[in-house]
Design a protein around this nucleic acid. Sequence first.
DNA 1: AAAAATGATTAGCG
DNA 2: CGCTAATCATTTTT
Length: 445
Amino acid sequence: MDEQPRLMHSHGVGMAGHPGLAQHMQDGTAGTDGEGRKQDIGDILQQIMTITDQSLDEAQARKHALNCHRMKPALFNVLCEIKEKTVLSIRGAQEEEPPDPQLMRLDNMLLAEGVAGPEKGGGSAAAAAAAAAAGGVGADNSAEHSDYRAKLSQIRQIYHTELEKYEQLDIVSTGGGYGQNFKKNACNEFTTHVMNLLREQSRTRPISPKEIERMVSIIHRKFSSIQMQLKQSTCEAVMILRSRFLDARRKRRNFNKQATEILNEYFYSHLSNPYPSEEAKEELAKKCSITVSQVSNWFGNKRIRYKKNIGKFQEEANMYAARTAVSATSVSAHGSQANSPSTPNSAGSAGSFNMSNSGDLFMSVQSLNGDSYQGGQVGANIQSQVDTLRHVISQTGGYSDSLAASQMYSPQGINTNGGWQDAPTPSSVTSPTEGPGSVHSDTSN
DNA sequence: AAAAATGATTAGCG
DNA sequence: CGCTAATCATTTTT
């Protein structure tokens, strides 16, 4: 506002619509222009100033008259020039917008997630690939993944429809003629609307084509920022979706009965060394229709939980032990195995089994086990049978949970050593695999 | 609704 | 790298 006086003096004109300016102007221009012109301009401005006081029809008529006035173009140009020099030149500086790194990051991510990429086919494939890669384990449950994919494509669809609304074709670069060849969407609709409005208004107030251009670019910037917001929230949604569906910890499902059965069977029949080899894990995984890492997880959990509270697992242990013991004994009357080198190690295995808990149970089992070994001539390397038998024995012997439970978590027990893990009985425990088929029937293939 | 069970994840060890 | 131990987050049981 405070600039107005200066402008008027230097150019001899002022902005229309400012009450009281007309008078000033007339005074200021008196010396430079001819009397007639002065009068013309004064008339014009006078009409402008009073235009709002008139009825609509009258106003239209006067508007038209003004538009047709011979001085109008010149005056208009002058006004535009002034406006350009004052207002627009200030904004002109912030024209260049560097490629926003933030936007690029979002774009890249959306592309990587298969949201922004090409349509359906390739897109979902990419998404699946990304999902599989993220999951770490390939060929997994496809059920959950399909759910994931469905949700992802939902997001994708929303994203695309929304994006299309705001997408802007390059209008400015089409040159002077603001072409009509752009797609129908919110951005362009709005832009053309604004442009028409401005052009319409340019008859009564100073708006140069340049200004319209600028306005268009401003609108586009706005729409760009909307787009960015859209991309951002889409990214967010994808991230949430990922963490929801791909993070298996959430939405975990218990293994089915049969799988648990199989795993338990293996566990209790290899109780002295419940560390399935990679191959064994693979096989178990196959049989249980779970992944190898799930098998590993299961055994890890099982070992630690078993060890932590044997009493709680006693019943289960006996159950599986008895089951496998039956099958084992039925198959092999006695250890046909000749290759039972370091013979007296069965005791060691028992020790490793009992490890850190229940001293009483440990003792009793050990002695019993030893007896069975020496008296029964059980094949030394038939660990599984030893294991299972031990349980049967401990059960029949009446050392039930009461005892075990009470001493279960004997903390500073003599052997704080973990037991397992480092104590694979030297002899054959680890890989008696190739033994006589009869021995390890427990693997029940 | 609280408690137990359970599969997965994590830090840390060797 | 596989393991243990602790812990998380969910599911199942009580």
